[in-house]
Design a protein around this nucleic acid. Structure first.
Lengths: 219, 219
DNA sequence: AGCTACATCAATGTATGCAAAAGAAAAGCC
DNA sequence: GGCTTTTCTTTTGCATACATTGATGTAGCT
């Protein structure tokens, strides 16, 4: 899943490149951008850049000033918590539905991913971090698929994109990551037990814990 | 807000045209489409159609079959209820935030819109229907604005688009519409009272009532 | 006859050129 | 000198041509 930018089409790689630059802070809030500028920077024509920009506009990462160009949307401190609130509601609903609709294969996959995560937790190397990060993303994606709701899927992918703002795992210390890993096991078990209430509560707890970490984090 | 298709750019009007055709059933689920076909039908080039299609893909109204073209996404009966569940969670959160952040002007606007609705309820003419429908949309949009959260706004606009599936007001009888109108007054009052719990509960009640109507509706 | 390889076609992806809208700056008018 | 008008520039919107990809079918070989 990494280093395959070549295999992606230009439109998608433009989208990811821009989003990463926004999230990582290379493009700072209130920076003025223009489609041609971006196309030059990414060595491609305006067309794919345009598509990427349009998507980022819809998702709220960019805003277009009428006659002036594009601006990176600033992220108020309060907004991080709002994003967690939205994820809380959508993901806990997703977990509930997953408990109702997950196939055996999906249940196994969730347990496997949870095991991968705990196997590398607490992380010792950057490699561990990458593995965990990927397994984490796959875990949540699998739950979304198991929820068997294309519409919810569309919403969640947006919310998860927003959630990427917090991909800075530097916020998490060892204790936090161990807890997070345990939560994933809880969620997988709740889904295997086909217990929607448990799955919803476990996911809520998981998201709220992450929100608390983010709230406590300074710097 | 009506009859101004001319003032919209091609890309947006393509989006609305296609979405309306999907929602109204002109384009039926599993219909096979192609970008050129659509461009011809709408008398424009592929470029704006492409943008519209991409957005509809993101929103889940269309899906792209790898080597085959585009398909209109079918709407399982269960999915209508799922959409209501999503709206329930997002809109009640929006109402909560609106109660915390609405300006006096926004509060007045909500009361005004609620009054417009009840003034035309129960509707006697198609004109009344249009007025109500518009005031209803404006009401929910105002709450979204009052919530003062661009990210939530992005999510809600997606959810509200999904909610358009239910714009068929034919489901509602007079009794339902009177109740709906009363709910809007409740919500406006809760927000004016700056009572987040009340606002959230009132909005939940409102959405769940609509979900119940949809569930009971056959044909 | 069955399989492989190549040709062909349909659909999407990308580049580029031109048109239109919106601001900003400069020139003319009062 | 201040205000209006015009033009120039910047940025986005749209169309068209070309490239690429993947599917289908057909011919040739075994």
């Amino acid at each position: 899943m990494r280093g395959e930018d070549d295999r992606l089409n230009a439109s998608d790689s433009a989208y990811h490149a821009l989003r990463d630059e926004i999230l990582s802070g290379v493009l700072k809030p209130d920076d003025r951008l223009t489609e041609v500028t971006l196309a030059d920077r990414l060595n491609m024509s305006r067309t794919p850049v345009r598509e990427a920009v349009k998507r980022l506009l819809i998702e709220g990462f960019l805003t277009r000033a009428p006659g002036e160009g594009l601006r990176v949307t600033g992220l108020e401190p309060d907004e991080v918590q709002q994003i967690f609130q939205i994820r809380l509601k959508l993901e806990s609903y997703g977990a509930r539905r997953a408990a109702e609709h997950a196939t055996p294969a999906e249940q196994d996959e969730l347990h496997r991913l949870a095991a991968v995560m705990s196997g590398h937790t607490p992380p010792k190397t950057d490699q561990d971090f990458d593995t965990i990060s990927e397994a984490n993303a796959a875990f949540h994606r699998t739950i979304m698929l198991a929820a068997k709701s294309p519409r919810l899927g569309a919403m969640m992918s947006l919310a998860i994109n927003l959630g990427l703002v917090l991909r800075t795992y530097r916020m998490y210390d060892d204790h936090d990551m161990i807890r997070q890993s345990r939560h994933h096991h809880d969620i997988a078990e709740a889904i295997s037990a086909r217990d929607p209430d448990w799955a919803e509560a476990a996911m809520s707890s998981h998201v709220l814990a992450a929100a608390a970490v983010a709230r406590a984090f300074k710097g």
